[in-house]
Design a binder for these strands. Structure first.
Lengths: 225, 225
DNA sequence: ACGGTGCATTTTGTATATGATGTGATCCAA
DNA sequence: TTGGATCACATCATATACAAAATGCACCGT
């Protein structure tokens, strides 16, 4: 017997995953219209799974659906970006507080590893990946899967803009510096310092992010949502 | 001519809202199957908007969709319930910290009001409403709309079970006590006390909730998800 | 210029058909 | 009787075709 195909997934999920990937890596620009017919053809499905996938992505905050006017890749106001990062900050610091006492040499090594890898790569995609690994390793031991996936979702809404940040400023350099500081304090088990540094890092990110978004929207008519 | 109907909403949203309401108030039991054809007839639409509504609710955590086996009202493991309340706790205490310095007599009065109303009503639905109003009033002045709506979503996943708690234990009495304590500290502007009491209140809730869920699932086969 | 008219595009929803999948009943053999 | 294989049926998942409604735009006459 053939060992059965890799489990044929639902086409809705396939479409949603493909679209999500495209949106996350900026292949489809912010504000760009997502026409059902076009997408259906592109993925070789009918418009039904496409509609469902769009709704799914809308629930994740990556797409906004304007009734009777179709879906577009969601934009993000500076305020929203700031708030998303605040939420992330709140959750992450709490997670780190839980995880820190459980952190062992393995965790330390893996965090250092991803930090190292992120430093060595020139590729933006890779950097984003390693960056996520670094952060999530810090609170892996907290054992709070839903909280982590929540942060993941928040991140997805922000990532496209971080990407811009990476190419347009010294963000990457500063982030690396801050990551090193965080890791150092983390290794020492210094909870207060880690939280403070992590908070500072995210605050810093939010500031720059808001600026980039503001500037990016400068030419556009408001209400892109 | 005719003053136009009250703004005909998208039927997907109408279905989603109606279903959400039913799920939240327990009209449809946990684990109950949501058959597309049945729902379509009930709401007088075809199965397409129904599918989309189900996906929406799945994203909100109220429904779980099992590929090729349909959707059921989502269950919640004790662990998940605990984690959801932890998230809520983390976010709420942070919000309160931000809101407390901005709280004025109006806020105090409205919080006291909803607390009062919740005390006077015998109706469970009303109690839930007033309870939400009480909590959300506390951090209204934080001006963090997304954070609040996030908490709202978390709450929706928990509410059905809190409802059980209300009918089966002295939870309501204890909650009222704790609410009074929280409000007292809040009025004094004592941040540390408010956060500590609020945290205790939610921890307390989570303990009882986990117990009720455990007990409720006792007879059921595991994996209701 | 200006405001309305009508058309094309697109979304939204219905109806219906078809294949796939899971469920449960049935039947057969040990 | 019990266990397992089989089959029929219900339901899901998706496709196709089509109709209705909303939106945006080009066109037109003033």
């Amino acid at each position: 017997m053939t060992p059965r195909e890799p489990v044929e997934r639902l086409s809705v999920d396939a479409v949603a995953d493909a679209l999500r990937a495209d949106i996350l890596r900026g292949t489809i620009a912010v504000g760009e219209a997502l026409r059902q017919e076009t997408l259906a053809q592109r993925f070789g499905v009918s418009h039904i799974p496409v509609r469902e996938a769009l709704r799914q992505l809308a629930a994740e905050g990556l797409v906004s659906i304007r009734p009777n006017r179709g879906a577009v890749v969601a934009s993000l106001s500076p305020d929203e970006a700031t708030e998303l990062l605040e939420i992330r900050c709140t959750l992450e610091t709490q997670l780190v507080r839980w995880a820190l006492p459980q952190a062992d040499a393995d965790i330390h090594a893996r965090a250092a590893d991803s930090l190292d890898l992120s430093e060595r790569t020139a590729d933006v995609d890779r950097w984003m990946e390693h960056n996520w690994t670094f952060h999530s390793t810090l609170y892996e031991r907290a054992g709070r899967p839903r909280m982590v996936s929540m942060i993941r979702t928040l991140n997805n809404q922000i990532d496209r803009f971080i990407r811009v940040l990476l190419s347009r400023s010294d963000y990457r350099y500063r982030a690396q510096e801050e990551h090193h500081a965080i890791l150092a304090a983390y290794r020492l088990g210094n909870e207060v310092a880690v939280c403070s540094l992590l908070g500072q890092h995210l605050l810093d990110t939010s500031k720059q992010l808001a600026a980039v978004i503001e500037q990016g929207n400068a030419g556009l008519p408001p209400g892109g949502r």
